[in-house]
Design a protein around this nucleic acid. Structure first.
Length: 219
DNA sequence: GCGACAG
DNA sequence: ATCTTGTCGC
């Protein structure tokens, strides 16, 4: 698929933050409610700064793999909480460009608008591709939330500065919740519905599990 | 000031 | 993220 050209690469924390602040107004929090093809994205780190990005496209109805690609690269930015996207973006964009199919939803390993400046990795990828995108985090990052009830499907809001920016969603009975937030062109309601639909069996959504596996053990 | 902080 | 064994449970 075609991805917008990457903006000039930031050399400092201030420049990276400025890019986030400049792109943030482009984020849309409404969009389609259902999707035919859904992509999971993940990045594996190895060595000092080597990264391998993986994108796996699934049929949303059957959860069968339709296409999978990887891309190798280097992390071109230090790890700074809140600027995490700048480590993974180049490799993920390169992998997306290798896709023959065009997914209708990107499920990212990380956060969307539940972010210190309201512009996490899922927002960044959504804006660059123009596709609906959502973030699924494995650990709490920003804001406040109460633990959801133990049953699968229960959730509680994640609030930040009085705003609801995401949800802690229980995808498996009695297992730690995942932290869901919209990235681009999806509502929080749809993101919640999708994470549950895509996680019929494990804590993490199938597309992300496939991407994680592929990034670690490339074909 | 200090610690904590998506992956 | 990564460095790492065994163990419990479905």
């Amino acid at each position: 698929m075609r991805v917008n050209q990457l903006h000039p690469w930031p050399a400092t924390v201030e420049e990276a933050q400025a890019i986030q602040d400049r792109l943030r107004p482009q984020v849309e929090l409404t969009g389609p409610a259902s999707f035919g093809l859904v992509a999971g994205l993940d990045v594996h780190y190895h060595g000092d700064d080597r990264v391998r990005a993986a994108v796996v496209v699934l049929d949303a109805a059957t959860l069968e793999v339709v296409e999978q690609v990887t891309a190798e690269g280097r992390a071109r930015f230090p790890y700074v909480p809140g600027l995490f996207a700048f480590r993974e973006l180049p490799a993920l964009v390169e992998a997306l460009e290798r896709l023959k199919t065009t997914p209708e939803l990107l499920v990212c390993d990380g956060y969307g608008v539940a972010h210190p400046r309201g512009f996490g990795l899922a927002c960044h990828l959504g804006v660059l591709t123009g596709l609906p995108a959502m973030g699924v985090g494995k650990t709490p990052f920003v804001g406040e939330h109460a633990p959801p009830e133990a049953g699968r499907g229960s959730w509680t809001p994640i609030t930040l500065g009085g705003e609801t920016v995401g949800r802690a969603v229980r995808t498996r009975e009695g297992v730690k919740p995942v932290y869901v937030s919209p990235g681009h062109r999806v509502s929080l309601e749809t993101a919640t519905e999708q994470v549950l639909r895509l996680s019929p069996r494990y804590r993490l959504p199938e597309p992300v599990r496939h991407a994680d596996h592929l990034a670690r053990h490339p074909a």
